[in-house]
Nucleic acid binder design. Structure first.
Lengths: 197, 197, 197, 197
DNA sequence: CATGAATGAGTTTTCATTCAT
DNA sequence: CATGAATGAAAACTCATTCAT
């Protein structure tokens, strides 16, 4: 039955996701995943070629979505935000998250991606972060993409995505939490630029 | 010779620190540490009871310092910062890092601590973070220690400590970097509170 | 449908034969055989009790034929070849292979048999080889069945059967190739005996 | 102690050689090798990086010797043997094997090489065989290196090396056996060429 | 008949740790 | 003190085989 197969595939995937979150991909054990998925070690290999294949299926969707989000952002090529626009944006922040683009960030699986130390996803992740940082730098009118500000924003962004996801799993609450984070973050950057002007 | 013994202890410790940073404590291999310390696997066990003992010695100092820093902060019981005081603080931020208390945060070993997934240090770390968050909440006049603002600050703090340490290893540059981060962060929180007032 | 059943049996058998040839019986994988036979792993077990049963069906025919060939040869108890007879035989060698007895040697499945390291066929094979060697020794007037000459002929015989089968799969070409081999071989043995006489 | 280490290395190597001969490299089990070497599975990995490393150490010497033998033969570029020279060679065959070049062929480890189905040694082996066949073809004045005669000789050569080694392990007896084989083989080829002339 | 999910023992390999020398 | 041989458990993965549907 295909129904059952898909169900077990999903069960394995969910068990793997949990284990990857707790112990990291590298530290997670296939045996434990099998146990938590109520199946045997060998049987997992009927569904996934190997450990990395599970990671692959787990990360495919969120990675593609994030990639698309970044690409869409970059393509827009919208002008630098003026202070006024920035403030307007902040005021309307509550609606920001309704913007479908941002939704992809509230995905638990991204935490797994952030913690990866091996596999080709490391490069994918770092490339995506770099791209995003470059665009962010242009967005904020920075000359050097290695500028501290960009790094700060980027790291805070990631740190908060991670935190929001691990502590407030419900999507609705997560969204609100994320908005708050983003608001404070933007306020910080803005007031800093104001000082410099 | 006690000198030589101490030297080897130190060499092992340094090799372990590098390996722990790259692969994480759990992912680091005693064999590799032995090789990088130019000694043998078995000899490490003359200096350290086991893998965790190395971690213990490695983290003792930074953990105690951070603990002390938090305790000192809490004991001061200084009043809530008024907006004015806060702004004054920000203006003088360049001297902030000279404050010996903060120096302890620029320690590479804290990154290892942040990434830990096993051992009793996880509890120590989480307790310390919780304590700091509680104090931070009181500091900022928040009623709930789980408030988003505190989490934001906390996470940004950690994320930036991590980043500053991994990208700018020289202490001097690190300090400047850290100050920038902290400045933006405070500015954000402050402007946010101003809005609310 | 019995027709279909037989067809699938045959397909499995052919897939197994290919795999056994490439990786050897022991190294061949049931999964791969299933895939190459366009069926499922489980379904193979409806046609064959286990892996060895496939080998059994695969080797039954060629083994029996070879056994019969050897027995027939032994039963003939024809006299020792004189040098003259031997030379006559060689002259007529091109017709030798038309002799139906020999045809059984040009069977790809014998290569699988030669490479076997497990199962009861090992004994069957070794017994057959031993019998053939004994008869060959008698044929050539050797006193000791372990004589080098017999071993040489036997091994060359097998080696060439193997080679002819793996390089020239078309039966017609194989036949010619085999004749050449046999001719040279006999010439060698003969000229050697001549020397000794 | 280095003495003991080398001894155990040797013990493991010998156990591996036996197992490889019986079950083939691919079919041999590290567990069994460990047991037969009176050590533990894990301990083998102190001496050899992996299974293939054992094969590597096992085959290095015989492979290099055979390669050298072939190269030396090819470099000589000696003329085609005339029939007379060939016969002289045959008469002096008993001394042929004293020729140090040939000694390398009487090595049990070559049987392991011949039976290999995986690892890079397959290419090394096939390249060496091809080189030898080409030279042999030139030696015998054949125009086509794929000629049946060359294949015959080559296969017989290998088959007999294999047989001699597996049945007559004592070097002295092996040598005599090998000479007989070679004699018959040459006689066969020679008488065949005579016929053609 | 056919499917493919399931199993359990097998494989090679790595690891932290112990111990005799 | 130092060495490195030894150990045993656990890792990822494969395999022949079974069985419910």
């Amino acid at each position: 039955m295909q129904t059952k197969k898909d169900e077990i595939r999903k069960t394995i995937l969910e068990a793997a996701q949990k284990e990857f979150l707790i112990h990291g991909y590298e530290g997670a054990s296939m045996r434990t995943i099998a146990k938590k998925a109520n199946t045997t070690l060998g049987n997992i290999y009927h569904y996934y070629e190997n450990k990395e294949a599970i990671l692959e299926e787990l990360l495919r969707e969120p990675v593609e979505k994030v990639k698309k989000m970044i690409d869409d952002h970059v393509k827009l090529q919208d002008d630098l935000y003026t202070m006024a626009e920035m403030q307007e944006l902040l005021g309307d922040l509550d609606n920001l998250m309704d913007y479908h683009e941002m939704q992809c960030l509230l995905d638990e699986r991204l935490v797994i991606l952030f913690d990866l130390r091996t596999t080709h996803f490391v490069k994918i992740r770092d490339d995506a972060i770099h791209k995003f940082k470059q665009h962010l730098a242009w967005h904020l009118g920075m000359d050097d993409d290695d500028s501290a500000y960009v790094d700060i924003i980027m790291n805070t962004f990631i740190a908060c995505v991670r935190h929001v996801l691990s502590e407030h799993k419900g999507t609705e609450e997560s969204k609100k939490e994320f908005i708050k984070v983003f608001k404070v973050l933007c306020a910080g950057v803005m007031s800093n630029r104001k000082e410099e002007e």
